[in-house]
Amino acid sequence: MVGNSKSSSDYEFLTVWRVAGTPHEVMEILGDAGALARWWPSVYLRVAPLDPDNPEGSAKTFSLHTKGWLPYTLKWQLTVTEPITEKGLALSAQGDLNGTGRWTFEQDGPETVITYDWRVSASKPLLRRLSWLLRPAFSANHRWAMARGQEALALELRRRRPGADLASIPRPAPPTFVSWHRRPRMTHHT
């Protein structure tokens, strides 16, 4: 974004979560982008490292295929742009979404307050062309995705607790509107 002028396809979201756990526990989960599809499957359909041979030993750039509640998907790259610490992490996005995100973690008693500042511009033609009309729906879609993230993170934190009864912890929500090519084919018998 340049100056104060914003396009109808520019979005700024500030999300605040509160979860039972320490900033270190949160950092270990949110800082591992490669595991997003496992514990936040309602949003992250596919995550693939683009630099698995990074000299620091862990990938910093990932190819993502994501979705929210609405029946469209986004393909973009996430790059971790600052070291991941117990205070948070920063990232950039390129592809169907372009911009920056910053996660911050702050201990508050037995909980961690997590703030996500996400500033992106929609590049996917559908989103860019229809933002002027469907901005409230696209914003609601983001809020839905982030609510599923808070739920999924709380479940993942429970799963990682020593002595956790894994069978009693529900699985995270699956994606909505699974694409036709992923649905089982129906066969007709005559």
Rank of each mutant, 00 (worst) to 15 (best):
G109I: 07
A122V: 08
G99I: 13
A122H: 06
W118C: 15
R128Y: 08
T100R: 06
D108Q: 05
G101A: 11
P125I: 11
Y116C: 14
D117R: 13
L127G: 08
I114D: 01
W118F: 15
A122D: 04
W103V: 12
V113Q: 02
V113N: 02
E111M: 12
T115C: 09
K124L: 15
R129W: 13
S121R: 14
T100A: 11
V120S: 01
L130C: 11
G101E: 06
A122T: 06
S123Q: 04
S121C: 13
T115Y: 07
A122Y: 02
T100K: 03
V120I: 01
L127C: 13
E111F: 09
D117N: 14
K124R: 13
G101H: 03
I114T: 01
S121P: 12
L126T: 11
G99D: 13
S121T: 14
W103K: 05
P110E: 05
E106A: 15
Q107S: 15
V113A: 08
T115S: 08
V113I: 10
D117G: 11
S121K: 12
A122Q: 06
A122N: 06
L130I: 10
T104N: 05
W118R: 09
D108P: 02
F105E: 00
L126W: 10
G99S: 08
G99L: 07
D117M: 11
D108S: 10
T104D: 02
L127A: 13
R119S: 07
F105W: 00
R102W: 08
V113M: 07
R102H: 06
L126K: 12
R102P: 01
D117H: 14
E111H: 07
T104G: 04
D117T: 13
G101K: 03
L127F: 10
W103G: 06
L126R: 12
L130D: 11
R102G: 07
R128S: 12
L126F: 09
F105G: 01
R129F: 09
L126P: 02
T104V: 04
E111T: 12
R119Y: 03
I114Y: 00
P110F: 06
V120W: 00
D108Y: 04
S123W: 01
W103I: 13
T115I: 09
D117V: 13
F105R: 00
P110N: 03
T100S: 08
I114P: 00
R119L: 05
G99F: 04
L130E: 13
I114F: 02
T115K: 04
R102T: 09
S123R: 04
G109P: 02
G101D: 06
